[in-house]
Design a protein around this nucleic acid. Structure first.
Lengths: 207, 207, 207, 207
DNA sequence: CAATAACCGAGACGGTACGTCAGGTCTTTTC
DNA sequence: GAAAAGACCTGACGTACCGTCTCGGTTATTG
């Protein structure tokens, strides 16, 4: 399976790929999505514009790939020993990621564009979303192993719940960080985890 | 106060404002944010480009105003008699709004842009976010009047909780609709409301 | 007739036209046809590239117009008092024109392009060729008035002859100057005029 | 001298040369000079771009060689028995050559380019111009043998005259065919030969 | 018959210019 | 003095060729 296939002709420079993604992130952090120019990325990467377009169809796809790498590095699930701790941990880490200037704009802009571009949506899903969702699955499994959560009745319910939980966590953090533009600190993370685990009544009663 | 002040010269056409916002929404639905051109909006509205720029500083601001109008018309909070019902109701209505092609793209794009533009963020906050947040406040007040929720200990806690709840509801619905690209139907709304009220354990136990 | 028609909107800058043609000639002289870039012309003229394309369809047409102006200025027919003198004079002047760096390449390149572009050919004809042909007509009329040449039998013959003479003079000078790359000096002009007037035998007999 | 020198290594494919020149002519006829792309020529010839550049320095030189071959095949001087006949014959043949789509554009374009490139000019001279000039020399020799023309006084005069005659014939035909864009038919050829032999007065008197 | 040397195809590479498009400004005439 | 019309500058877009550079592989001559 997946033999490198040794095609004819000069092979693509692996170094170029690295330099381009790196340059994209740097330019993104400095200029933001709207002012990000392909020509500028090419110049920073020491690469011709044609090389960019030979590998990525456009700005959107390039940025998705450039940002995706960050999600790989950043998103881990430290085992804190309790479900609350795990949730708080992943929320904090996700928030830190969103606080970076290169992710802030880029993520939303790319999502906006994806509402009109099915291929882009698929790319985002596989490069970013699915990797985050993995964390939810692992966290739940641990919690169930620890007896903090019951097991789901069947596989369908399992998927349904994972999707719901994922939308709640990811959506809420993004909204807090980017729309409400407020800090995701330890206190907020704690209150959010409490809400998630025990519901509205408990949180309101807490004061 | 603020009498129009009867300035000299030809008065601005009120009709133009309406036509421009209408044209903006139409173009947005048709072309999406990235391909939306000011010149196209002007042409559709039967107005010169100059007129656009005399009234809005740029594309971002125009789109915010065009979309904001939709939120006014659409967002009401029907009294369903129970907190669960109210949450499900508002979730469904919000999702319907996000399902429109002109809101889908515009909302995300404008938020993306706002991460680098303080003035734009303020405009979004007052034109869109604060109006939605009002619904949360009214819903909570009703629930507390009905005895479904306890009262907060103090005003600070009250604000803190409202913000949290708002981020959870709005963020989750947006994420479900735009990122996960899944339908917000009655079943999902119900399960989300259950999670919000009773927490994770209850939902998982439900199956 | 042909009232300027006073259209609405900002009128085109007449100054820009002048600056562009001037810049085109300068760039042409410096770089030659092949290396002439529209962007460079725009920069030299202190004008945006879009302004160039708003007025000329492309490089070919722009160069034709730029060079055409030179032919107006340069091509006069000084009355030398004899047909030989007139021919020698016009040959020398035409050669001087072809010796300029901006005409040298441009003229041939544009003619080459015109072999595949009917519109371009028409533009060349009206802007350059027809103006030169006028000289032949005037020269012949003078010679006939002086009795150096008989009158043509009819109008058809008159046109036929003018065309032939024109092709001979213009073609020969161009070929000498650009293909054979030899100097068009007084001696050569004299021998050419002799050939034209008296034919081959006379010239060969001259030695 | 100039033994091939029998170098080691794989010899260049002679077939490739033929295919490339053929492909160049075909592409030239189809697309014209300006749109002629090296990559296209390579593809048509079933050859890699590298192979082109290994044999010709660039587009100009390739086209000169491609077109030169046509001049070899086409240009002969049939012995018509009289000077007039010889001139008319060579004029007709030359015009036929210029009527081909691949020569039309190519010749002018290459000449245009040569005004800025000494090496190219030399290549054109040896590959195209000198071969045509040979015809003039042979034609004159025949005419002198037949007694239609006197002999030149000295060698210098002989060269001078040949050059003049050549510029007149080649230049006029090219100008008629490519600039004036008129047909070179038997009648025109006859009138041109008459002009060349007997001069202007005779032609005008003819009507 | 192995080494060596030049060839060959494929195709990626850094460049340069292309012609187009949108953003936002400026200058006219018209209402 | 606002509005429509449209020219203007700026700057990025994505594409097309240029001529160069690896690659893996193919013929030839030479040792």
């Amino acid at each position: 399976m997946s033999v490198p296939a040794r095609r004819t002709g000069r092979p693509r420079s692996a170094e170029a790929d690295r330099a381009i993604l790196e340059a994209t992130r740097a330019a993104l952090a400095e200029l933001g999505w709207a002012k990000l120019a392909m020509s500028d990325v090419a110049a920073r990467a020491g690469v011709a514009k044609t090389t960019l377009y030979r590998r990525w169809p456009g700005k959107n796809e390039l940025v998705v790939d450039a940002v995706a790498a960050l999600f790989d590095e950043q998103l881990e699930l430290p085992d804190s020993g309790s479900l609350t701790g795990d949730i708080e941990g992943v929320v904090r880490r996700f928030a830190e990621l969103l606080d970076r200037p290169e992710t802030k704009t880029a993520l939303m802009a790319v999502i906006a564009e994806s509402t009109r571009d099915e291929a882009l949506r698929a790319r985002i899903k596989s490069a970013i979303v699915d990797r985050q969702k993995e964390l939810v699955l692992r966290g739940r499994a641990r919690a169930q192993a620890r007896g903090e959560l019951p097991a789901e009745a069947d596989d369908a319910a399992s998927v349904r719940n994972a999707d719901l939980i994922f939308d709640v966590i990811a959506g809420t953090v993004v909204h807090r960080a980017l729309v409400s533009n407020a800090e995701v600190d330890a206190d907020w993370a704690h209150r959010f985890a409490r809400l998630l685990l025990s519901g509205l009544t408990a949180v309101v009663a807490d004061g």
